[in-house]
Design a binder for these strands. Sequence first.
RNA 1: GCCUCGAUGGCGGAAUUGGUAGACGCGCCAGACUCAAAAUCUGGUAUUCGCAAGGAUGUGCAGGUUCGAUUCCUGUUCGAGGCACCA
Length: 1158
Amino acid sequence: MEYDFRKIEANWKKYWIDQQVYKVSNDTSKPKCYVLDMFPYPSGAGLHVGHPLGYIASDIYARYKRLNGYNVLHPMGFDAFGLPAEQYAIETGQHPAVTTEKNIARYREQLDNIGFCYDWSREVRTSDPKYYKWTQWIFLQLFHSWYDRKENKARPVKDLIAIFEKEGNINTACPGDETLQFDSETWKNYSEKEKRDSLMQYRIAYQGYAQVWWCDALGTVLANDEVVNGVSERGGHPVERKNMRQWFLRITEYAERLLTSLDTLEWSEAMKEMQRNWIGKSNGAEVMFYLSPTLSEGEGDVIEHETTSFPKENEGVPGREKDGWNTADATVYNSIAGFRQDLKNNLTKAEDKLWQELRRNNLGVKFRRQHIVGKYIADFICLPYNLIVEVDGKIHERQKEEDAARTEYLEERGFRVIRFTNEEVLTDVNSVVGRIKKILSKANERDLANALISQEKGDNKLARNISLSSGEGRGEVSITVFTTRPDTIFGVDFMVLAPEHELVDDITTPEQKKAIEEYKTYVKSRSERERMSEVKQVTGCFTGAYAIHPLTEKQVPIWISEYVLAGYGTGTIMGVPSGDERDHAFAKHFGIPITNIFGDRYTGEEAYSAKTGIIENSDFLTGMSIAEATEAAINELEDIGAGKRKINYKLRDAGFSRQRYWGEPFPVMYVDDIPYGIDEPIIHNDWHLGHLPVELPMVEHYKPGPEGQGPLANIEDWVTTEAGQRETNTMPGYAGSSWYFLRYMDPHNDNEFAGRKATDYWNQVDLYVGGTEHAVGHLLYSRMWTKALYDLGQIGFDEPFKKLLNQGMIQGVSQYTKRFGINFSNVSESRTTEISFWGEGCINTPVIFDEPKVIYYSSDLNPLQEPVKVIVPIEFVDDNKLDFKNYLQNKIDLRDAIFACKNGFYLNGEYYSYPANNNEKSFFYTTPVVEKMSKSKHNVVNPDNVVRDYGADTFRMYEMFLGPIDVSKPWDTKGIEGVHRFLKKMWRLYADEQKGWIVTDEKATDAELRILHKTIKKIAEDIERFSFNTSVSQFMICVNELATLGCHKREILEPLAIAICPFAPHIAEELWHQFGHTESVIDASFPKYEERYVTENSKKYPVAVNGKTRIEMEFPLDAEQAIVEQEVLAEETIQRWMEGKPLKKFIYVKGKMINVVV
RNA sequence: GCCUCGAUGGCGGAAUUGGUAGACGCGCCAGACUCAAAAUCUGGUAUUCGCAAGGAUGUGCAGGUUCGAUUCCUGUUCGAGGCACCA
């Protein structure tokens, strides 16, 4: 009776299916345990040995929990929508549904081969209409929801409409557009389009704009993956960033909750840290930099260096010319209009105080506030007297000269400007009003005459006639930056806008327009990754505009550069070269003078970016620590109204549209270009279009639609319906995977995404197993969906995955060799080939061939010329030696190639010695390289072959034995022998080849019980802490010891069979039934650990002198220090090592060790 | 570039809380059984000095804390995963 694993495994696999052993019920009194694997994308390549690693781990855990009395949900399914299937369809014309079905069947077969305890009756596939019906339904819930920041949860949009009808959005800040403000009247008067547009700014699933990779040649949008080295992967066409209307999920509203509830999860710290960093909460300040007024010649920082910089060849764009400029640009008017309303609604304290004094003809004359003059906005203006009153921060104290020049300029045009600081207004408003009155009373004839004319002609005309130069009447157009280092505010030497920033065109001077446009074109070709990573090459372009530093009044040049991204913060940074490395490189490159605010710690060579030390050269911040200075700077900026404290998140809203075919269609239609959910009355009342799912229609081809739309846009009669136009985008890969764990709980429910009873019972996933590559994508999105569903009352928990186990990768070992091509110089003009080689201990022996040859070099040779690396498929290599017989059979064209080795060479598989070398035959070696297992590297090991040769049980245990589950490690099929031998050895404890079943009912000895219970304890502990490799070791130790003891006793072997069931279920099932049981072993109970069999009462202590272990001495476990000390010091070896020196300290750690310090 | 993780014999790895570094397995060497081979079994196997007893060195590299560091701290090198449209 030998261990016939093939028969045993086939037999029990059938039994499990026939008996439905792994079917899980939702109705049970048992405690539940939900063990889930991240579901696979069924690729055409099938599973390789790396894939099942996590599945085996979760299977062990699931079986272990079931043996411990839990009702265990352990399902599997397929993430079946995705780009590769569509790509394959484009190439071969096969429908993705067909290839996906085929791939799934293959995956299923491979998975079944390994003996997992999945309940396949619960399988889900994201591409199944019965499944994506509910993906679409959840999308609609998100579309019909907004995030209430006060209650901190998602709520139905109908609640929001009720609020708007009552009070407008005064108390409900708009997440999509902070400037959006309306009262209830305005709301009621809005058109349908205006209402829907406003609501869109609140919805959790909403439409906005995002940049995508656009490939003109292919006429399609490309995924990041499809863009390689700045060109399309297919065809190598140029690509550029293009702004497109897209669906988004407003995950940013969940940022704080996603962050704080991480603390409730049992995930690895590394994983949580990655999510924290992704969310990227930072405390800092928003600082406003006002645009500078006109610079006359010589004003401001003179830029002596280049003003634009592209990588390499694009140098030499003309620089800024140094005379005055005038941006009488219509776009500025538009910018102002919005600001004006803003300013009116957000008067500073000082402005408000003064306004109370000036309003309602209090001074006997009418004042207007936030009035547009020329292109700019005056705080207060008295038109009859042509008097402008400005209230600003104390910055004006430091800018008297400029103000004087400006006053003169205005006076020439009939205006008088009077300025007050916030402080003046706030502390003594009466004196301010007094001064205004005085000026009014002194108004001369000319003023009055002008005023009268103005009034006749009307305000508008006045505003047009009196044209101020760009930038004057400052306090109007400002640029807001977010900074985490407000303490470095005095070190600001320049500002950088993202090239996409909306103000760039407005502020660029005519002279710089061309350079800026060219630079923006360049940036369009750059990926965000490239823009962030390239640190050596500084690029950028000067806009010609300047901003005014809010505290120093210094003119700060405004640049654009690719290293500032539009989506981060405000898309603008303040450049502090002495404190930030990138800013430093930027300033150095463009010759921008650097202000040192760190004293000696800034050397001029490198930025001082450490967050310790004292701030210097910074006005009132000088001498403060960074923390103090940060506080003081924010306080000051808030006081003068130039900034405010701000929490910023790096997290961005999640793009949710793909211009693709193979994904979930959106349950959305456009009526008059307004998007509606198909569950809304306007769509379904008159028509029969309100039903989910919106099925993915068949298409004739997978080519893109017009203007970058997805293939669905080509199906005219699908897109156009009685009610409206269908959305032609599809959902991204993560749509289906964001909630699939809920569907497993109730997979056949046609009325709900999952019944509440089921979701309440199964609740959170107790153990979720998957790779770290999902750290921030899938795991963050499914957390958000869970929270949204929880907020809307659909489920009773707001975190999906309680415990997370990350599995590492199993890498492949690729084999490479080195080759010289025919065109190399070692082919002489007489068309001969000369082999010369240089290797350790070799003689350089030229061999001449009468025709050109391709030459391959064994890895122990070092050819002089740089050879080409060539992959050799691993099936042709054994122990790093090339197997010529097989290799040449498959590579017929290489039969004429030379394979040079140390002492000779191979030609068509035949070995020839070099004339001068009479040494023994040498091998042709390849070079092993550990890297990702993939088809393209020809290093894939198929689990089917391993299972065929060694059995599923061996395969499972070997995968676990390779090393810790969470670490990447290379696969080596050779090592599997050891595990296989172990199973055979264990089998021999139970059965003998000749004698058959040899288990006896004899009483077990203490030694046998000790090793059994030690093993039970270790296995249980190891499974709980997911240390499966050490479990396998312990089984080996146990079996080795039992074999040595000659143990064949049921008392020992029956529990052992149960204990190994999670790891090797087939052999466990076979042994269990051999014992006479008729139920499956999975319904047995995991053996109970009994301490009494294991306890020992003495220990061999390592005894060290000065930390170096010298001998071992045995003491009872409860030995007192005094006795131990006495005995140890009396020991001869210890005496010798003490060398007669006096005892300094005696360290005795009970149960651990003893150390004698002299 | 940024974030996260990792590095221990020829190889995969063990050492769970700072307490005998190298468990267990592979490979290799030697032996038993056999006509022989396979299978199985036994012993050895970090490096180095030594016949041995025994000693010295040793956990990527450089420092530090400690009676004691693979484990904690600082710096550094190399490798892996992620960086928002691969899944």
